[in-house]
């Protein structure tokens, strides 16, 4: 009896050491899962997921420490993609998706303090000290990080106007009634 317990304990200890050693010895540089997750995230860098940017959220997800529905800009499509990648169950978004917007700096009010430039994670604001600042619409990700730091509150988020290039056909409203499985041959005649 005692021998058996000792033998098992010894085995457990041996494998524990072996596993621990190989974890250190064969450690993969970087984290491929985190990279894959990061490539799915919208890179808005807005921090709305509760992390200081997309990469940290990706790392938290890779470690399994986070829910997959925290990224607002990514929306439902991202939840589905993450569920697919991580083999998790899709979860509903906790908050409503927001309309895509870009920042707008009121040229009348801007005092050129450069604080928004420092806040912008993607360098979408151009301007120098004491000069009027402006937002590069094509680069702005709509993260809203520049809104808060402005001392004269001259930055607002404006929804991107829908245009023909960005327009998409809607998902058909006329959904088939009844289940598609085991359908009755009602109309086939």
């Amino acid at each position: 009896m005692l021998a058996a317990i000792l033998a098992l304990a010894a085995l457990a200890a041996f494998f524990g050491v072996l596993l621990g050693y190989s974890a250190i010895r064969f450690r993969v540089e970087g984290d491929p899962i985190a990279d894959q997750i990061d490539s799915l995230l919208p890179q808005t860098q807005c921090g709305q997921c509760g992390h200081p940017g997309c990469r940290p959220y990706a790392e938290a997800l890779a470690k399994g420490e986070e829910e997959i529905n925290k990224c607002l800009p990514g929306g439902e499509a991202l939840v589905l993609a993450l569920a697919d990648l991580l083999g998790r169950e899709p979860v509903a978004m906790d908050i409503k998706e927001k309309v895509p917007s870009v920042a707008f700096i009121d040229p009348e009010l801007c005092i050129g303090c450069t604080r928004c430039i420092q806040a912008c994670p993607v360098d979408a604001i151009i301007g120098a000290a004491k000069q009027l600042h402006a937002v590069l619409n094509s680069e702005c990700t709509g993260c809203e990080l520049c809104v808060e730091p402005c001392p004269v509150a001259c930055i607002e988020m404006r929804p991107i106007r829908e245009d023909i290039q960005r327009w998409r056909w809607p998902y058909p409203a006329r959904q088939p009634v009844a289940s598609d499985i085991a359908a009755p041959l009602r109309d086939a005649a």
Binding site: L41, P42, Q43, P121, V122, D123, A124, T141
Partner: peptide, 18 residues
Amino acid sequence: REQEKRKSEQARARHAAK
């Protein structure tokens, strides 16, 4: 989606550059 993907690639690059 492809367009969004391109845009987020661009944002990633700009963020990394910053």
